[in-house]
Design a protein around this nucleic acid. Structure first.
Length: 344
DNA sequence: AAGCCGGGGAA
DNA sequence: TTCCCAGGCTT
């Protein structure tokens, strides 16, 4: 970035964003409250998640868990159920742990200090800054992907956003334009980045600060932000056995490492006494950010009532049916498979 | 400092 | 297809 910038040189930019935000703020459910609990939940829900994708999950989550105490006293599997289909399931596990943390360390009252908010499970520098500024008058910028994009374009700054120091770097850059009302400023940056300064085909004609945007004046908005690290997906094969009889099937719960933490899935091995009931298999391709999954689901229809009963008496698996599966959180491809099995 | 963690929408 | 989203945790 250029040298000799002063702290007040770009202050009018931040104020212009505040004016723009007053008239153009998105109408979102969590915009009508300053309840730190709800702001916290919404910040977690919308990590790496677009508004339209997470809105129903957020509303359902708040409806079922309206406050910290209700959440802390709920079971982990039910919290995961309300996260079904959202992805990044450690967020749900951490939210639950953090709720208990608040009960134990803060007498059930959401902490107001940035340092205390930062100690909560699943809360990093971004989320702590966001909750602190929106709910408690905190004065730190909530630097996220929107900040990277807006600021790197405005200053035509080629600092690599995949660099681990990017958060600190763009925090300092944000300070140059940041007005006193940091809470609204942070939200204004989110809305500008989402609605105007979009990753592709930004709407610069509607942007309140394009007049001083360096990338815009250079016609190089598509050059920013600079990001060198590319995510490449590796191939991974999984096999599951759909072991069922009269609508019931075997499941068990994943561990809390690797993918799909603590979600429910089918067994990945076939008990020898079940081998003679295999009737075929189905291949499912499923793409994740870091994995190209090839999933083979082997159909095992147990036609012998005795074998089935003898096995489930002493098995280490759980058992459920299509209806019961609605009360558990399954990985997306397995969720789809179960739904399709209804039609048979 | 780098790698990993889901799912979906946009282009 | 590729990119990226109101990031954080683990190693």
């Amino acid at each position: 970035m250029e040298k000799n910038r002063t702290a007040t040189e770009f202050l009018h930019i931040g104020n212009r964003l505040l004016d723009w935000y007053k008239n153009n703020a998105r109408d979102l459910p969590f915009r009508q409250t300053k309840d730190p609990y709800k702001i916290w939940i919404c910040e977690i829900v919308f990590q790496q998640t677009r508004i339209n994708q997470g809105l129903n999950h957020y509303n359902n989550f708040i409806k079922r868990f309206p406050d910290i105490k209700t959440l802390a006293e709920a079971g982990e599997n039910e919290v995961l159920l309300y996260w079904k289909g959202l992805g990044y399931y450690s967020r749900a596990i951490n939210i639950h742990k953090a709720a208990k943390q608040i009960m134990n360390d803060h007498q059930g009252v959401f902490p107001s200090l940035y340092e205390d908010i930062l100690k909560l499970k699943g809360v990093g520098k971004y989320t702590a800054a966001a909750v602190s500024s929106i709910c408690f008058g905190g004065s730190l910028p909530a630097v996220d992907g929107n900040f990277y994009r807006v600021l790197s374009r405005f200053f035509a700054d080629d600092f690599d956003v995949s660099n681990s120091r990017a958060f600190t770097y763009f925090s300092e850059l944000a300070t140059l334009v940041m007005p006193e009302n940091v809470g609204d400023f942070n939200q204004a940056m989110m809305d500008l980045g989402s609605e105007i300064c979009k990753p592709k085909n930004p709407l610069c004609e509607e942007c309140p600060i394009s007049g001083e945007c360096l990338a815009f004046s250079l016609q190089k908005t598509s050059d920013y932000p600079v990001k060198t690290k590319k995510t490449k997906a590796e191939n991974l094969s999984l096999i599951y056995y759909f072991i069922h009889r009269e609508g019931q099937f075997l499941i068990h719960q994943r561990p809390d490492d690797f993918i799909w933490k603590k979600l429910f899935e089918f067994p990945s091995s076939l008990p020898s006494e079940m081998e003679r009931f295999v009737t075929g298999s189905k291949i499912i391709n499923h793409k994740l950010t870091h994995k190209n999954l090839t999933i083979e689901i082997v159909n095992v229809e147990v036609s012998s009532e005795k074998v089935w009963n003898d096995f489930i008496i002493e098995n280490q698996y759980l058992i459920t049916d299509v209806e019961g599966s609605h009360e558990k959180s399954f990985p997306k491809p397995l969720e789809n498979y179960i739904q399709n099995s209804l039609k048979d």
